[in-house]
Amino acid sequence: MRIAAFLPELLRSLFKKPNTVDYPFKKLAVPEGFRGTPHLDPDMCIVCRACERDCPAEAIEITAVNEAEKRFRMVIHNDRCIHCGQCVDSCPTVPKAMRIDSLFEIADDSRHKMKEDWVYVRAVIKPKAPAPAPAGESPNA
């Protein structure tokens, strides 16, 4: 039992700079490898749908716009996305068609504004790693 055991520490803080950051005006940098918002690089996507299949939040939607022209549309619903990065892990192309950047301030006043979509022609680059068959090997190996 010591009365005022905390006193030295408290008084020391009185003359120190606050430890907190004045957030919206000053920001801390996120570390390298931070999982922010997923993005598509449409030039690389071979539309294997591995990302769509493995996304736990069903945030990725791939639809065919024109089957003959091999035109596809991908929508990423950022309101549903849980920023797990599984889509990046699942994507078989090299370099990855699906990327994740460090953007985290994505809040908006409407969920519809948080969608991002791309309409693109399926890439014909041969992936260096084999695309996983729908029920074959796991892509995260």
């Binding site: 408290l10 008084l11 803080s13 009185l14 120190k16 606050p18 430890n19 907190t20 004045d22």
Partner: peptide, 13 residues
């Protein structure tokens, strides 16, 4: 303010 600074916070700013 004093309470906040004692706790190493900013207090009203």
């Amino acid at each position: 303010k004093v309470f906040a600074r004692l706790q190493n916070r900013m207090g009203p700013t």
